[in-house]
Design a protein around this nucleic acid. Structure first.
Lengths: 349, 349
DNA sequence: TTGTAGGCGTTATCAG
DNA sequence: CTGATAACGCCTACAA
């Protein structure tokens, strides 16, 4: 006797049984409606729809999760690189899934840990998210992607360059935009341009460096190894690099820092040495985080579209959950273009 | 016939049935073990424990969620105030739940929306988190807390002052620390001190303002209304306030800004007007976000222990999930003390 | 202290 | 196109 529907109707929230009873159909039919099955007559569809509206029925995600062996959640896997970056990416993701039933879980990991893969595996098998978004730099690690494939968890890799097949990744065009930025500096008359690198072993520092070299090459300038110094994306390394570059007798007239945090460090060094920015030294950065507009003078920088990348990545990961508003074409996009933001630390025009 | 255990044992992940079969007990007994029931003989406990280890069994959170009507997840409810703040809080929460099975879901809301409560209710009924952590400023809204109570979702309110009974909140001591900071400025000889307020309608700006007034009062100084200007916690408002204060003929010799972002704005204003910091003007902020140490000169500020607050809030929300490492005493703590960080924008000693 | 029966709300199978 | 029946994996009665 299926009288379960009867008693649960009064006090607790309505279940699929209540809907089925009211619509005079079976549970499975209601289930079909929920899952947009094409195998339904318009009439039945209508009946079910009415009952759902009348009851204010909402499918229980936990029950679906159990039956489907999959949680209604997407996860953000990252290695806590730049705080702002993660946050802006989150904003993008959340804007994409705002009107869905999906939750966003945040999962920081430690890329230097030996247990990295175990950690991720435990997380994925326990939480069983619909899919994961992997931020750089760990998005470059193929073992993680292999793990996702083995566990049958969808993924999107995010990076400074195309890291996977188009349907599985989102990327920015770091190399091209850096080339553009440096070319703009050259056009302003700078011929001795310093470069502060990001940390070794990752993709984005390489892309940005190549963009820098591209620009020099195109202008027929020889890169001066003495003007290219190491950094690690942190403020302190920018400070050190700044002093190193600016204490040279043949110091550069412009410096490209591979991110804003290091650019701020260089700015500090310039202030400390009494070098006027931008009159005696042009400084440009990369990222366009909050810091870029809060320092003095505000940084001319590359706007890295990390929030838009978050939106796109989420849409590509779970297009079936998005409303009709999403055009199919959008989802084939891979590259989200960056653009240059001119502020006071370097004149470009 | 309970042969379900037999066939699921070989390929898929082990279930409670497999454990029960191997240990020679019933499902319920295994369930008791999982839930730390005291009603078990040591012998049985051992048998079950062995079987679990041998099988590498992990309880399925989705199934538990369905049965318990509760997801193994805690949610972070916030209204996107300062990005850095949210992120640092997240870090704290994640450090607390690192070794648990819990996931952290992030849920930004719009406090100005009419649907605020509906949004939250939908989220809570759908996701059914174990509990929610509510960040300021929405942590001040009693309707939200009432909603949590009605839906039987545990919560912790986070704020700049004690907002709820001790077991349900975590707070910083903004008023006291601001008083301390301003007293330190006074001790340095400043008697005309500007104050830049935060936005109206929230608690933290009020607390900070009261701390400011406390310090003046204690020193026997009269607050000058002309030196107390409005802001809204954003950079731009700090810039405006800075110009307003610094263009006065009787301009202050020190300014307290209610957060770092506004303090950065004031710094810009000072630079633009050619006023030397800290020699002609001392500037202090509040928060100690990344910006504080990236601007020039670096900001003397109050370190707001938002990450520690995140840790504590998470521990108070779900103490039963934490390892033995957590002393009961810690969980009775409510106030996480702030402290002053002296940098170059103001000398305090 | 342990076990049995039934339920949590949904989806899959497979017959009609 | 639709529906009975059996999962999904765990937990709560209640009984022994």
């Amino acid at each position: 006797m299926t009288d379960a529907g009867e008693n649960s109707q009064n006090q607790s929230t309505p279940t699929i049984n209540d809907v089925a009873a009211m619509a005079g159909v079976s549970k499975k039919t209601v289930s079909r409606f929920i899952n947009n099955s094409p195998l339904m007559s318009a009439a039945t569809r209508e009946k079910v729809s009415d009952a759902i509206d009348k009851l204010g029925y909402v499918p229980n995600p936990q029950a679906r999760a159990l039956a489907l062996r999959r949680n209604f959640m997407i996860a953000l896997l990252h290695d806590n690189p730049n705080g702002q970056t993660v946050l802006n990416f989150q904003k993008g993701v959340l804007s994409a899934i705002r009107d869905t039933d999906l939750a966003l879980a945040v999962r920081p990991v430690d890329r230097t840990s030996d247990d990295l893969l175990d950690d991720i595996e435990t997380f994925l098998t326990k939480q069983r998210p619909l899919g994961v978004l992997i931020l750089p730099p760990i998005s470059e690690r193929d073992e993680i992607v292999d793990l996702c494939k083995r566990l049958d968890v969808a993924y999107i890799r995010v990076g400074s360059t195309v890291l996977d097949e188009h349907s599985r990744c989102v990327a920015s065009n770091d190399r091209a935009i850096v080339q553009e930025m440096v070319a703009a500096l050259i056009k302003q008359g700078h011929s001795r341009i310093g470069f502060v690198r990001g940390p070794d072993g990752f993709r984005s520092p390489l892309e940005r460096e190549n963009g820098f070299l591209d620009a020099l090459g195109e202008a027929g300038l020889q890169p001066d190894p003495g003007l290219m110094v190491k950094g690690n994306y942190r403020f302190q390394s920018g400070l050190t690099a700044g002093f190193e570059l600016l204490k040279r007798t043949d110091r550069p007239s412009a410096i490209f820092a591979s991110n804003d945090e290091m650019a701020s460090g260089i700015l500090h060094a310039a202030h400390a040495l009494g070098i006027a920015v931008p009159d005696e030294l042009a400084i440009v950065g990369f990222d366009d985080t909050a810091t870029a507009s809060h320092v003095w003078p505000p940084l001319t920088t590359v706007h890295w579209p990390i929030e838009e990348m978050g939106r796109l990545a989420a849409m590509k990961l779970v297009p079936e959950f998005l409303g009709e508003g999403v055009a199919k074409l959008d989802l084939e996009q891979v590259i989200v273009p960056s653009h240059i933001v001119e502020r006071a630390s370097a004149r470009l025009s």
